[in-house]
């Protein structure tokens, strides 16, 4: 699919956390393209989210009630679907980040040379 040879695979479940964090970082609601672009930029092109995973992930988040989608204006005045965090989403994000950090710390402890 993408034309980048170096395509790092995301750990399962982290995509949703990244999306939530992205939306939280930016004050206002974002559209799907904007979310993918942000993740790509901030991670220095390491994490490139494909559309085939992005939109299903967004749908999942919407079903679970952690984001809410609304139609609005994009930055170049086009009609776009914008996603924003719900209070439940914020809570969930905090919990997921905490879990992730705990797991990451544990992995690092195993992997790091003593």
């Amino acid at each position: 699919m993408g034309n980048d040879a170096k395509k790092t695979e995301l750990m399962p479940g982290t995509l949703e956390m990244l999306i939530l964090k992205t939306i939280e970082r930016n004050a206002g609601p974002m559209h799907g393209y904007g979310i993918a672009r942000y993740i790509k930029q901030i991670s220095n092109d390491v994490l490139q989210v494909e559309e085939g995973s992005l939109y299903p992930a967004l749908q999942r988040l919407a079903i679970k009630g952690w984001v809410k989608a609304e139609w609005g204006q994009s930055e170049n005045n086009r009609r776009a679907r914008l996603y924003k965090l719900t209070p439940a989403g914020r809570k969930r994000l905090k919990q997921e980040v905490a879990d992730f950090e705990r797991v990451l710390e544990a992995i690092l402890r195993v992997v790091q040379p003593t």
Partner: peptide
């Protein structure tokens, strides 16, 4: 409840998804 609402607004869902992808 959200899933049930989806059934009620099925057509709109399809249209909106298509528009969203066109935008992307």
């Amino acid at each position: 409840w959200r899933r049930l609402l989806f059934y009620a607004r099925r057509n709109r869902f399809d249209r909106e998804l298509e528009e969203e992808m066109r935008f992307h």
